[in-house]
């Protein structure tokens, strides 16, 4: 009761990275709150996954093993979660801000009349004093996220409703096992008690899943373009430089919205979070949502014709100039001076 619970997501038969990242965060929150860490896994043929989950310091793993729970479908997963939460009354529930988490989270919050904060970039424990009510709330979950055009950072709390729910994007939190030999217990849920037959009304007819070809998250060099790159054709320069340096191409939201590159390349609060050795920002002005996704890069180079672009403040090197002039020069020097 009153524990921290993480919804573990299956991505084509594997536990999603974001779930491990949330378990890592969940463990540290549970330590601060002096409570247990629990995990919930729904799907088909779940035997064996406990070996991957327990090392993150999970005390209880709830398994809902039923072939009707795979692939993911909104209503049955909602139903298991809502009914389990009614019994176990977790104080905090975390899930990935993925297609699944963003489909499921609001549904569960609506059923439980509980608050949900999307796309958090930090989670902390802290107190809150309501001066009007003259009441002090101890050990709430601070759900921290950029808001309103990314120009402010808001700290959101749910003083009265439980669970305090939050979604977090993949890559935002670090993934770290607690103890390879950590022992928790498994609780097998009787799915028929948690899900009504009527929940299977929506049917998955077809699925086509491709292996992701783009791996920005683990790339040592990211060459990233913004609206200032100007066109999809100009992005070719970025691809050339990235290929030469053994890196990947990223983009700001403005560049993705303008259709210059595919959505998978979006870096920032609502995209991927990266921590490369080198981040080259080309024609990116630097809204907070974007910075949230690349701030921890070791070296940041900003190429921008605007000497006062906000991103320049956090850059190690600022090149004032046009992207289409600067990149060819970088390419040329690199080709001439490396093998």
């Amino acid at each position: 009761m009153n524990n921290v619970i993480v919804y573990c997501e299956l991505d084509e038969g594997k536990i999603a990275d974001v779930s491990f990242e949330l378990l890592t965060k969940g463990r540290s929150l549970a330590n601060q709150l002096n409570c247990q860490l629990e995990a919930l896994l729904l799907g088909n043929n779940l035997k064996g996954f406990e070996k991957e989950i327990f090392p993150y310091g999970v005390d209880t793993l709830y398994l809902a093993d039923d072939n009707r729970l795979s692939p993911y479908s909104t209503l049955p997963h909602t139903s298991v979660m809502v009914n389990l939460f009614k019994e176990e009354k977790p104080q905090i529930a975390l899930m990935g801000a993925t297609t699944i988490g963003r489909d499921l989270g609001p549904r569960v919050s609506s059923a439980l009349k509980s608050g949900l904060t999307a796309d958090c970039t930090e989670l902390e424990i802290g107190d809150h004093e309501d001066k009007k009510l003259n009441k002090v709330y101890k050990s709430l979950l601070y759900q921290i996220r950029p808001a309103f055009g990314g120009n402010i950072i808001a700290t959101i709390i749910n003083p009265d409703c439980r669970p305090q729910m939050a979604t977090v994007r993949e890559g935002v939190m670090k993934k770290e096992i607690t103890d390879a030999n950590y022992k928790g217990k498994i609780v097998n849920l009787d799915v028929s008690k948690y899900v009504d037959e009527t929940a299977f009304i929506v049917k998955v007819i077809e699925r086509h899943i491709e292996q992701s070809k783009i791996d920005i998250k683990n790339s040592p060099v990211v060459v990233s373009g913004g609206f200032g790159v100007g066109s999809a054709a100009n992005f070719k320069l970025l691809f050339n430089l990235a290929a030469l340096l053994g890196g990947e191409v990223g983009a700001s939201r403005a560049a993705v919205d303008a259709g210059y590159v595919e959505h998978e390349r979006q870096i920032g609060q609502t995209g991927v979070t990266v921590r490369p050795k080198l981040y080259i920002a080309c024609g990116i002005s630097g809204q907070i949502q974007h910075l949230a996704g690349m701030l921890e890069s070791s070296i940041i180079i900003s190429i921008n014709s605007d000497p006062n672009a906000p991103i320049n403040k956090i850059a190690n090197y600022v090149i004032v100039g046009k992207v289409e002039n600067v990149i060819p020069k970088m390419i040329r020097y690199y080709k001439e001076n490396t093998k």
């Binding site: 700290t155 959101i156 190690n316």
Partner: peptide
């Protein structure tokens, strides 16, 4: 159920950035 506890304006610790122009020499040095 959700309340905004506080809102912070974002102030980034400015790094000591090196300013370069787009001349060949500057880029070659970098």
């Amino acid at each position: 159920p959700t309340k905004v506890k506080k809102v912070d304006n974002i102030v980034f610790q400015s790094k000591e950035s090196r300013r370069l122009d787009d001349f060949d020499d500057d880029i070659n040095v970098l």
